[in-house]
Design a protein around this nucleic acid. Structure first.
Lengths: 336, 336
DNA sequence: GCGTGATTTTAGATCGATCTAATCCTATAA
DNA sequence: TTATAGGATTAGATCGATCTAAAATCACGC
């Protein structure tokens, strides 16, 4: 195995110099750098990160733990995070907890052992802030993203779910709907509940009773959403519009409506949440609340960068507002 | 920072013993193990993987590079890989090349530097086997999955795309369709072409001319697939059935058909490829070719395990057959 | 009590980088 | 010619684990 020493001998310099070249240090003279780079190429030297990490305090590695790799918002989130961190030479390592506490703590442990410079986590529902204690003890910053623990001493980047949901519901009320159903999520109950509160806010804003509106919940599969739609459409008062916890559920709901012989946007209005890539190209194009997952990723990345510079900063909570994307699944209710 | 030495002192044993405990060695006596484990807990010791990796030859880490984290087949693939590797104590690190050669080689470099024990890669279209040369030189095994380079000296786990596509097309022909369109992929042109060849095989099996059948291609977004569908349905001969490169494109095609006022499975038959989770719960449930991505992941994991045991094994190509999942989007052509 | 073999434990060298602080150049000014 | 500043380079210690081979301990029969 070729090491720094071999390269150094071959280039006629010291190990220290080669090490500086590998790290693009401005200290080393142009000529020397070229000489060393040639030697590296000629010998086929491969940098050993374990050795580097052992000696230095930074690993230039950050961990990202997400609860569901199949949910498209997380690929947007990832690209936002990488936008900020890659230019700084940080590699982002992704792990999918799959909504399992066991898997989540396994990855937490592993990432701690590899001494990540920081951790960004969208945590499994019901996570206690205790699980991050080893991180705080060692001084590794933790950033929460999209999901958060109340009063936990960690930065957070996410959106205002309650207000977004209120806006979504308000949009339907403004169109004239008076019987509006809510399809929540069993998979992320906490966010779903917050969005339900926003739903109630809007209903009450219009002087109506939120308690009388039909509510169901489902999991994040089309089959589950189709079933929930069938269920909610048979409840009374029969809804003329549906607020869905997120876009995948809204997609399932359109399929459910098709099956009932109802046209989304004509017979029944429908609004989603997240504005995933597929929402605009769905047929009919889905009205939804854009959360800007990419930007949230950038925010999380920035929070981490700041905290890596100075871990004594006060806790920072960055909450952005969701924006209504009016497309074709919402319209005034059909006259009887 | 607490090290092995601190734990050793606290427990009244040597560093070596603590090290053995950390690695669950059967060498250490039960009593000693408990003593050490207590010390670890009391001191809040965190294992330092960089130090371990520097000294030992294995890092118990494998790299996985995929081209599109948003495609659901890769989450199935991942879970299959983890099924095999996690029980052996290997951690899988995922990176998304996003179909970019630059990103792919960046991750290849990084994973090599961290000395992964093995690499599983679904490579960007047009990748040359040269990019893996550093891996072979150092002796790190590389496994190709789902996508492969012809004649490259690496193991492969995937499916028989040509035969699967032939089966899919044959199914439509058996139902009586004679004008069948093919919607290919611009994103993975190589696989798409192979599937097109299978399409032609089936057409020719039935004594028809493949050249006369309408063919279009699109990207992996619903919008692109909707447009492709509109396009292909206006070509002549007007197809009564469509073979789609994969399920997401087939989903887009159903949306396109709805928009044209055509019912999938009644007015026009439709078959996908992959059998992603959403296919069964789609409305109408999508007929497709199941590739068993989870099992392919297990196969890739197994190939890697074998090769980690003995890197002198001859190259092994594991090609499984896709299975027809007959659901509701395929039916005999409508009588005129 | 002692030899024997199996089981546990350990000392000390080692992996390959980075860090610190010192030294070596080189160019310019006095 | 020499002093000096500043840039470029380096020697040697160090990070925290694992490995090897040897030593210590234990169990047991004679």
């Amino acid at each position: 195995m070729i090491t720094l020493l071999d390269v150094a001998k071959h280039a006629g310099v010291s190990r220290a110099t080669v090490s500086l070249v590998c790290r693009n240090s401005p200290l080393v003279a142009k000529k020397t750098r070229q000489k060393v780079e040639r030697a590296i190429a000629e010998l086929g030297y491969v940098y050993n990160r374990s050795a580097a990490n052992l000696r230095s305090s930074l690993t230039h590695t950050v961990g990202l733990i997400i609860p569901d790799i199949a949910n498209p918002i997380y690929s947007d989130l990832l690209s936002g995070i990488e936008d900020v961190l890659n230019p700084l030479g940080k590699a982002v390592f992704i792990a999918d907890s799959n909504e399992s506490h066991e898997r989540q703590s396994h990855f937490l442990q592993r990432m701690l052992e590899m001494r990540v410079d920081g951790l960004i986590v969208s945590m499994v529902a019901g996570t206690s802030s205790d699980v991050f204690e080893p991180y705080t003890r060692i001084g590794v910053p933790v950033i929460q993203v999209l999901r958060m623990i109340e009063n936990a001493p960690f930065d957070y980047a996410g959106i205002n779910n309650r207000h977004g949901s209120r806006t979504a519901t308000g949009h339907l009320l403004d169109l004239g709907h008076r019987n509006i159903g809510f399809i929540g999520s069993l998979t992320s109950p906490s966010i779903s509940h917050t969005r339900y509160l926003g739903f109630c806010d809007a209903i009450q804003d219009h002087g109506l009773s939120a308690e009388s509106m039909p509510v169901v919940a489902c999991r994040h599969t089309y089959a589950s959403a189709v079933m929930a739609t069938r269920q909610i459409m048979s409840m009374s008062p029969k809804p003329t519009a549906l607020v869905c916890h997120n876009d995948p559920i809204a997609f399932g709901a359109t399929l459910g409506l098709y099956e009932l012989g109802l046209l989304p946007g004509q017979d029944v209005s429908l609004i989603g949440f997240d504005d995933v890539e597929a929402a605009a190209s769905w047929r009919p194009p889905l009205t939804t609340m854009a959360i800007g997952a990419h930007q949230i990723g950038r925010n999380a990345g920035t929070l981490l960068v700041n905290r890596m510079k100075d871990n004594d900063l006060p806790v920072c909570i960055m909450v952005s507002e969701a924006i209504l994307k009016k497309r074709d699944t919402t319209a005034p209710p059909k006259p009887l």
